[in-house]
Design a protein around this nucleic acid. Structure first.
Lengths: 329, 329
DNA sequence: TCATCTTATGAAATCCATTACATAAAATTA
DNA sequence: TAATTTTATGTAATGGATTTCATAAGATGA
């Protein structure tokens, strides 16, 4: 592959002029411009990004940290990030951390090493201390999982209120024995959603019973199934279940089916995230929808702005309760 | 961030020596090594990948082309690719083409521009002509979708035989009205699976009826549901359905449920891919499992070998029929 | 017409790490 | 001990594009 010097030689100009033609950074006479363009075409020249990136000390690569590919929750968000980034000439590198600090380090180093220009972290298990260190010299945006009062900008929804609404919906259906499948409360979203759960119960004078709060290891289908098995084991099985993720809710649904019980007649179920499967289950799953695509776009635009040196503000997005068969009377 | 020159100055050596310490490419005396390491630590130096990549004219980035994130089929494969790549110091860039030639071009250009070292394409909609052009000067491996007799190495399974086995399984259950939900036959895998479908029928003296072969637009749930609605519309509705992807099969399942019919009693269903959700449906879905993780690993190892300049051979992997509730008697 | 401002272009420095080549010192071998 | 090899290190070129600085030619205005 030809380089800029060869193009310059062929066109009978200097490499500076070729660069000017390429980037439109200074006036170039029409005749020279044409000569250069001809040479470019003839040599089939494509500028080397390596050279350009080194000189500009940017990589135009954004890292997107997610804990695992296997949660479909992230898909739409990623689409939003990718669409926005691509149309602004940035590429995204999807980084699955597997909640593994070593992997996380690899990705952090990419930023330090100038191999990436910034990070959107959707990983609730991320090492916040290290992230803050990195944020001193690099651009970072948090998505969904965030840090209240911290200095890193974020995009999220009001988790407390969303959970409150979901649980309230179950209460209005007449339930007062409401199980809560939560993930580990080391995650902020989990703590927030628990607060919402409790507020809804208290407002309706339903006592909060810790027996009805189950904490899962992960957010896989299996974790949801296991939670449901727990609820079946205790003397006082709930008549409705709120799960903090659709994958958990679907696992619970499956376990209820296995028991030959009916949803929503015997047990109502509501999830969170509105993953595409949630509309394919039998019965279809009620859930809380976040504007994932928009959140992704917003986060990408914030990050790119940050990289350009502008200040950006955190945002709270709207969410929506989606009622389907699993919570119909 | 300090650069190699500053480290050299601080340690009182030349940058060449620092590079030698860093890469162990030539003997360095213990005393100098210690001096250099001390300077590196004090300056908090991390080598710039941009400089290194330019000099070595490599990016240690691999592109993975997929048509869309929304098919969970790809997840395990990507895990395999990523694990292998990361442990060989390569990063992967997940490229969603959306079957959009413009996007595809962006990614191809990254390779031409030395921003990426090679491509694993899982995209059946990829522009094969362009891919072959690219393959003349760059490293490429095909995964799943391949080109018979072509010069680009691939990793795949025997699609014809796998489809044959799946359909044969339905026949053995006593079905002779077997619908086939295929995707567009411009894809090789679709043509191969159709061959398998027809061979199974013919061997059992069941006539092949084109009315029972439906071609979908995509492989989303909706496409599967639509195919099933078609089967309900024709006079002679099949008693069993073979879908070329689990997402299609799940859509069909949903549609059958909507009709208040029972799977497998009224209609048996078998899919393809063994996505994680296929074990969560009601009833659980029979399917054909490909060794996705292994296929990903293999493809990554082939690509990295190619990049190193070695010759690599295409491989056929094993698959497995997974019988679940949707085809039980 | 002279002074001043634009326009157009090239030379050379720069970004950062790697490596071929050169050289000096130390170690080994004959 | 002389000759040869190995070790240890530095100098300078290299990869490819961008940009500052310098300069010459053309345009504008007084």
């Amino acid at each position: 592959m030809a380089n800029i010097q060869e193009v310059a030689r062929k066109a009978g100009v200097s490499s500076a002029t070729v660069s000017r033609v390429l980037n439109n950074t200074a006036p170039v006479s029409l005749t020279t411009r044409l000569k250069v363009e001809k040479a470019i075409k003839e040599l089939n020249y494509e500028p080397s990004m390596l050279g350009r990136n080194l000189r500009n000390s940017e990589s135009r690569l954004l890292l997107v940290l997610i804990p695992t590919f296997s949660n479909p929750y992230y898909i739409e968000i990623i689409n939003g990030i990718e669409d926005y980034s691509l149309s602004n000439n940035y590429n995204i590198l999807l980084c699955e951390t597997d909640s593994n600090p070593e992997r996380e380090n690899i990705f952090f180093n990419m930023v330090k090493n100038k191999l990436a220009d910034g990070i959107i972290s959707m990983d609730p298990t991320v090492n916040m201390k290290k992230l803050y260190e990195l944020a001193e010299r690099h651009s970072i945006v948090l998505l969904s999982e965030y840090d209240e009062g911290g200095s890193i900008p974020y995009v999220t929804i009001d988790h407390e209120q969303a959970a409150y609404k979901a649980v309230n919906h179950l209460i209005k259906l007449g339930h007062n024995k409401i199980g809560f499948i939560n993930s580990d409360e080391k995650f902020l979203y989990a703590r927030k959603r628990r607060e919402g759960y409790e507020r809804a119960l208290k407002e309706s004078n339903i006592p909060v019973d810790n027996e009805w709060i189950y904490h899962t290891e992960g957010v896989d289908f299996q974790d949801g199934a296991q939670a449901m098995r727990y609820f079946f084991k205790i003397k006082n099985t709930p008549t409705a279940v709120f799960a903090v993720s659709d994958t958990l809710a679907i696992g619970a649904l499956k376990e209820i089916n296995n028991k030959q019980l009916k949803v929503p007649e015997d047990i109502a179920v509501i999830g969170f995230d509105n993953i595409s499967f949630s509309n394919m289950t039998n019965p279809t799953l009620s859930t809380v929808a976040q504007p994932m695509y928009e959140m992704g776009k917003k986060a990408a635009s914030m990050l790119i702005n940050r990289i350009k040196g502008n200040d950006v503000e955190s945002v709270l997005m709207d969410y929506e309760l989606i009622i389907r068969e699993s919570t119909m009377r």
